[in-house]
Amino acid sequence: MKDVRVTHIGGPTTLIEVGGWRILTDPTFDPPGRRYSFGWGTSSRKQTGPALQPGEVGPVDVVLLSHDHHADNLDDRGRKLLAGVPVVITTAAGSRRVGGRGLRAWESTELTGADRPAIKVTATPCRHGPVLSEPIVGQVIGFALEWEGQEHGVLWITGDTVLYPAVREVPRRMTVDTVVLHLGAVRFPITGGLHYSLTADDAVELCELVRPRTIIPVHYEGWSHFSQGRAAVERAFAAAPDGLGERLHWLPLDQPAGA
Rank of each mutant, 00 (worst) to 15 (best):
R77C: 01
H128M: 12
H225S: 14
G153C: 12
E221L: 15
E151C: 04
P125H: 07
P217I: 00
S224Y: 10
I216C: 09
E208I: 10
W147F: 10
D3Q: 13
E234T: 10
P31H: 13
V98R: 04
R187S: 14
V18K: 07
I119H: 05
E110P: 12
E246A: 15
G99P: 14
P171A: 14
P54F: 06
Y220N: 09
E110I: 15
P125V: 01
L65K: 03
F237T: 05
E134N: 03
E17I: 08
I89S: 08
W21S: 03
V176L: 11
T191C: 08
G149E: 00
H249Y: 11
V180R: 03
F237I: 11
L81Y: 06
G159W: 10
V6I: 14
T90P: 12
L74Q: 07
L64A: 15
S44E: 06
E146Q: 13
R77E: 06
T42E: 15
V98L: 10
V6N: 04
W147V: 04
T199L: 09
F226A: 11
G102E: 13
S197C: 07
A83L: 10
H219L: 10
R79F: 03
Q47G: 11
G222H: 06
P27L: 10
P135L: 07
R101P: 00
A123S: 06
N73V: 11
G102T: 13
G11I: 11
E169A: 08
L52G: 01
M174L: 13
T178S: 07
L183Q: 06
L163C: 05
V176R: 06
T90L: 00
P171G: 09
E169N: 14
A114G: 03
R211H: 08
K2P: 00
A105D: 13
I190R: 15
H70G: 01
L64M: 14
H67D: 05
L52D: 00
V121I: 15
L132T: 10
T112H: 14
V87M: 09
S66E: 05
